[in-house]
Design a protein around this nucleic acid. Structure first.
Lengths: 337, 337
DNA sequence: CAAATTAGGGTTATCGATAACCCTATTATA
DNA sequence: TATAATAGGGTTATCGATAACCCTAATTTG
């Protein structure tokens, strides 16, 4: 590998002079500057950022920890993050936690060892508290994406889960539904709690009693929907609509229903959080509270870098509002009998 | 940040002793080993991998350069790559080239400066030759994914584009189609060339003349399908089927056709390369030559790390075969008139 | 019992780049 | 003209970890 010493030797000067040319600091005559620059180009010199990071005590590396890159929401988010990071001169490491607290913990440690400049993380849940504290202890800036963690006072880019849940529930009620089930993610995550809150509050405002039998809790990325669906369908008064906490749950629910011989939306309306990238879907079907995944990525990186560069002292919570998109998976309740 | 010197001071020993405990080298008494280990845990010591990389002249960083993470094929590939990298103790940087040779070039340079251990790259096309040579010059191992580059003799994990194209064309012919158009990616990429070859050869083997008017070339990620579709439809003898070089092109084609009032597959059969993640598709519709995207990722990383660790001298080309999946987008040719 | 090992640990130089400071001609200024 | 200022560049120490080698006391071996 070519180093500044190689350049210096060829240019008949000291390494320091080369360094000054590279960083555009100090006083260098125009002629030596050009000579050195030419030699660097000619020798294909590329600075060793390990060495640089070591002395400067900072890297241009950011870390992105998400649940699963193949989840469409995170895919788009990651793309936004990478675009913005690149634009601002940073590189992006990424990893998948699969909603596992253990994987998350392991990753935080490798991230610490890489001395990344900052971390953008979708925390698994409230129990992420411990490793987030570790980041704090090491003074590594981080920004929470999509989910809050009680006890952690950090920058965050969030959706408005309560508002989105309200909109979706409101939509179902407007279609005549009264028995509205909810299949939620783990209540260990803040989004699940807010979505529940929005759902309950909207029911209440329409004088619809909250029925615990209509509440199901499963992981955001799990697919044991069959079981939950059976329970719901076997109720004395089964639901006529389902509010799924995200699109994966909704898709699993629809598959399960079809499997059991039910039609959506004829027999059951389904709505959910998060859209699917319409570019890759031929016939968009889900009625969703769409969240701006790409913006989650870009805004998250911006927020992170602001903090890294110390341009801001106070904590910032940014809320990106959801947008209701009505499609074929929800329909007017058909009153039988 | 806690360093080995901090540990050493607290443990009343030299930094070297701490280093030996960390790396499990040298001779250390069981008692000091435990004492040091305890102090490290207590102080939350995490090694500085910049310093380590600097002296060892190697990092545990790999780089993944793909066209676009939101393209479903690459999403899954990236997931496979990350899983495998993590399993083998490496971290993954990623970036999107958007099929742009300029972005690719820039990225290669930042990658060089990060002193990554290796690079996994889906080259934009034949003109990637220059920066790949730069990698070679710096002796940074790399593996080509999905596409070959003439003049570059490197490890590669490839699909069998010719075979897949043959299968798809064969399928259309079996359905009675004779006027089969092809919408290809840029011929600057090896996959586009092989797919063309498979298509042409299969036509020939059925004594169907190759008609240049039925050949369209567009970028793998571009969507000016409308224009191409208009040309095809206005031919004296328009096609009854289209072979799209990948799924994005196929989707764009279908949208364009629908927009013009044509039905798929009634008026036009469509087949293509690369499946969509069936987990996120409610009603899989495309007849595809499916490629094992996840395996592209894992095998690519394996191949790369083998080379990094110097366990293998000779160049290796791994070919992962495609699989024909017949669905609703292709149908028997309806003979009108 | 003397010599040779070895256990257990320490010293020093090094990786590549940079900060902080120093040095010497030349030029500007009083 | 004498002095101060500056242009242009060099020296040295440092970041954190490790390789290569050294050192001393205890233990083993012939």
């Amino acid at each position: 590998m070519v180093t500044i010493y190689d350049i210096a030797k060829k240019a008949n000067c000291s390494a320091m002079t080369v360094s000054k040319v590279i960083n555009n600091t100090g006083k260098i005559s125009e002629s030596t500057r050009q000579r050195i620059q030419q030699i660097m180009t000619q020798m294909n010199y590329v600075p060793n950022s390990n060495a640089r990071s070591l002395v400067l005590q900072q890297t241009k590396l950011l870390s992105l920890l998400i649940a699963d890159i193949t989840n469409p929401f995170y895919t788009t988010l990651a793309r936004g993050a990478e675009d913005e990071a690149k634009r601002l001169g940073y590189q992006l490491l990424f990893s998948n936690s699969d909603e596992s607290i253990v994987k998350e913990q392991e990753y935080i440690e490798t991230v610490l060892s890489a001395r990344v400049a900052g971390v953008m993380i979708t925390p698994v849940g409230d129990s992420s508290l411990n490793h987030l504290k570790l980041l704090e202890q090491y003074r590594i800036p981080f920004v929470l994406i999509d989910r809050e963690v009680p006890g952690v006072d950090a920058d965050a880019v969030l959706g408005d889960s309560k508002e989105g849940a309200s909109q979706l529930t409101e939509h179902l009620i407007a279609l005549g539904h009264r028995r509205i089930a909810m299949i939620n993610g783990h209540l260990e995550t803040s989004t699940a709690r807010y979505r529940l809150e929005g759902y309950q509050q909207t029911l209440r405002s329409h004088d619809i009693p909250y029925d615990e039998q209509l509440m199901m809790e499963m992981g955001f990325n799990q697919t044991n929907a069959d079981e939950h669906m059976s329970k719901l369908l076997s109720l004395k008064e089964p639901p006529t609509a389902i509010f799924a906490a995200n699109n994966l749950i909704a898709l699993a629910a629809i598959r399960s229903l079809r499997h059991k011989g039910y039609l959506v939306p004829e027999d059951m309306s389904i709505v959910c959080f998060d859209d699917l990238e319409t570019n890759y879907v031929l016939d968009p079907f889900l009625t969703v509270a769409s969240q701006p995944a790409y913006d989650f990525g870009t805004v998250g990186i911006q927020t992170l870098i602001e903090r890294i560069q110390g341009n801001r002292k106070q904590i910032k919570h940014i809320v990106l509002p959801p947008k209701l998109i009505v499609r074929g998976s929800s329909a007017v309740r058909i009153i039988t009998q």
